[in-house]
Design a protein around this nucleic acid. Sequence first.
DNA 1: TTGAAAGCGCTAACAC
DNA 2: GTGTTAGCGCTTTCAA
Lengths: 347, 347
Amino acid sequence: MRTTLRDVAELAGVSPKTVSNVVNGYVHVRASTRSRVEEAIATLNYRPNLSARSLRRGRTGVIALAVPELDVPYFAELARHLVSEADRHGWTVLVDQTEGVQERERQIIGGLRDQLIDGLILSPLALTVGDLAARTDSTPMVLLGERIHNGPADHVVIDNVAAARDATAHLIGLGRTRIAAIGAQEVPEGMTARVRLEGYRRALAEAGLPYDERLVVPTDRFDRADGAAAMAALLDRSPRPDAVFCFSDVLALGVLRTLAERGVRVPEDVAVVGFDDIQDGRYSVPTLSTISPDKQQIARVAVDLLNQQVVRGGSGQADAAGPQEIFASYTLKARESTLGRSGGGPS
Amino acid sequence: MRTTLRDVAELAGVSPKTVSNVVNGYVHVRASTRSRVEEAIATLNYRPNLSARSLRRGRTGVIALAVPELDVPYFAELARHLVSEADRHGWTVLVDQTEGVQERERQIIGGLRDQLIDGLILSPLALTVGDLAARTDSTPMVLLGERIHNGPADHVVIDNVAAARDATAHLIGLGRTRIAAIGAQEVPEGMTARVRLEGYRRALAEAGLPYDERLVVPTDRFDRADGAAAMAALLDRSPRPDAVFCFSDVLALGVLRTLAERGVRVPEDVAVVGFDDIQDGRYSVPTLSTISPDKQQIARVAVDLLNQQVVRGGSGQADAAGPQEIFASYTLKARESTLGRSGGGPS
DNA sequence: TTGAAAGCGCTAACAC
DNA sequence: GTGTTAGCGCTTTCAA
């Protein structure tokens, strides 16, 4: 049998309540009593039963992180930061993988882990505004990514339109004029692929360059194979681009691969910019220019927002001012794939 | 107020026990009763309180996965598989990051999450045999990686010595004679770096090649920067290697980067083999030859072993036969970094 | 096939 | 500063 608070109380010759006070760091406990209790705890190797505590307190100390897949580098890096930040708040993180499946995402916002978690941080891929509006579960929730503006939930984003515009403008600034975009998707407004395309178009417009649909390549997903295939398709038709803006770094790594296979020089013949600043891009050949969202900030803000909701009473609602939308910062990191070797080594 | 089982019972006009029976799929419930209860559950949107259930049952349905860092590609990929496998067993996975810090690893095997989890899957980096022997916590546990043979815990590994030997032998088979090893570490016997070095030495010995300490480069960690620096050091002194065996793919990616910067041709001047078969290596330039452990198998076996322990009664002990050590399979994937472009495209 | 009662281990409320 | 009491929501006896 596991030792309980009661056992400790008996051994220390005090009441259960006193043990509870000591365990929970209540200050008004006489030093001598405290040390006696602590000694008993040590001898019995007592550990509080978290289920019982949760039942009583109505809080579990656990939050859920739901991402499409844990081994997509961007989500892996985000997860690392989120787990660290959550830890600082005394939260343990459990992980759900949605695989970007809508039904799965629906279940999760519907309260799949309802009674197990204090809150939920979700990076949705397929969820619609309607799904969110229909949500009845009141578990505190924070959304990550550009998905849904003005939705009914707190929300951490970066300004994807501006970032995509900056990335494209960087290519234009290098004198490129036939700039391709890889990663377009037929998805609802507000989704990542859409807003990044919007930023791309805006940069072209601002520079007085034409928008040429033949230079815009859709991909099913955002992975290396998609990037490689998209670049191959571009090289096999005209007009031939002199630069490529990829909607993710992983796509861009596939692009670099195809360019290397075809003997196309980067950046001399084709300059490449990605998005996400994953670690691989800092050591690829060539190193990858990219938009770098401040992932740690995203993680910190997300956990803070969640904490606010929990403190506020777990109503699932934002405060009177309505749901918050917080913009995290990003920077453009120009590396070899646009600047060439003059860009220096890994950064 | 959240709806409880009691509310459902009242609405359905039955006792709490009957609701419980329905919720838990107990068979001996009259169909009419069952449907009445199910209706009540639906109208009230009832969800069982998992804390209460855990408290009563003594099981939480949660297991912990402890890895050094979630954004190291190998662990990210492993985590993806583990979460999927755990899901198939009805388990939710919570994640702890140890950062490879011994004290942190000690806390975790010591029962940090003791009362929150049914079991623990740990990929230790710094733990000693002594730490494990001193463990008193009885939470079911499975260890991942080559760390400790004949230790007091169930354990999933691949045969690192054989795999490292195969990798090195592959290089020897290509006619290389000055084969460097990157990733050596001054660590206790049985740890990854040690066993891989052992396999390297064995391959050399079998081929009648001398073991040359100048070709063995230690690294603090296993990351891209370490690989890049190690390769730079090798190029700046003699003998100059004509091949490199890296103890991880991430190291190898750093190595490829340095070789590209220095204008050294791969594999013509230097052939490179890594270890782990992370996704990046399938699209790097050149693609990376590597040892590919069957990560899905590792995940499946680990979860199965944990499940066996839990079923057996959570004693933390293996069965009468003692702790089990299960070997997962691996394959050598020869790609461009050893075969050249004849090796074909991404595989 | 269903119900009544007890209690898992903890903490909140209140008394002393 | 410490003890007593009650009860969080569920499942497990045991009885009907």
